[in-house]
């Protein structure tokens, strides 16, 4: 498990483009909204939670494509499936690295973008906590989608069609937590819901993803 973590980490470090692009995408998408909706601070602050969360969801989705496809094409995926180690643990390690490189940067960028959208400052901590829990669940759910579409040629579109409906609960509780905090309401209920979704995803997603991976690997000749 630790060595897979190291391997993924060093591979990701070797080609930074793979995880920097979704971060830039996140920043660009968030800056688009004021241009589209109009700069008035009042409207911006009401839509800020939703905008931040939807862009985070899309950014995570963008970076999911490469989770298994690179390993599939150079043959390492089938070696992982054939190794003595349990595949769900390996999948968990890969997802953690993917999250550290996609979810965490979003998390660190979010305060700046929150101010950009005139999000009330007391909502920033809740925004960060909700993104912390939410993006990990999104990476886990997304891993199932990525595993199901491994090896398919234009898998990007199919991946989002499969993952988006499954990530709606995370989006709902995430954005409403931030909205509640923005309006000085207690956001603990929504955050606990996010935590519950995360625990469910942590327990089920690696299992389902490895089942899908074994099937995906068998497809390729």
């Amino acid at each position: 498990m630790r060595c897979i973590f190291q391997r993924e980490w060093s591979v990701a470090m070797r080609n930074p483009g793979q995880w920097v692009n979704p971060l830039l995408f996140f920043i660009v998408v968030v800056t688009l909204f004021p241009l589209g909706v109009g700069p008035s601070p009042q409207t911006l602050s009401t839509i800020a939670p939703g905008v931040l969360w939807v862009s985070a969801l899309l950014a995570v989705l963008l970076s999911l494509g490469a989770l298994f496809d690179a390993d599939y094409s150079d043959g390492t995926l089938e070696q992982l499936a054939l190794s003595g180690q349990s595949l769900p643990v390996i999948v968990l390690a890969k997802v953690l690295v993917h999250w550290l490189l996609s979810g965490m940067p979003l998390l660190l960028m979010s305060p700046v973008l929150g101010l950009l959208l005139n999000l009330p400052s007391q909502a920033i901590p809740v925004l960060m906590v909700s993104l912390l829990l939410g993006t990990l669940s999104l990476s886990l759910i997304g891993a199932i989608g990525a595993a199901l579409t491994v090896g398919l040629n234009q898998a990007g579109v199919l991946l989002s069609l499969l993952v988006l409906p499954l990530s709606v609960p995370v989006l709902i509780f995430g954005s409403s937590a931030v909205a509640a905090a923005a309006g000085d309401f207690a956001a603990s209920g929504q955050l606990l819901a996010l935590l519950a979704l995360l625990i469910l995803a942590l327990s089920l997603a690696p299992l389902m993803a490895s089942l899908a991976l074994r099937n995906g690997v068998s497809g390729g000749t």
Binding site: V11, D74, T76, E78, Q79, S83
Partner: peptide, 21 residues
């Protein structure tokens, strides 16, 4: 397919296979 990561050097690749076994 060789089952080797292009970005890593031979030692790192083989370390993974040793850890897996």
């Amino acid at each position: 397919k060789p089952g080797i990561k292009g970005a890593l050097n031979p030692i790192e690749n083989l370390r993974i296979f040793c850890a897996l076994s």
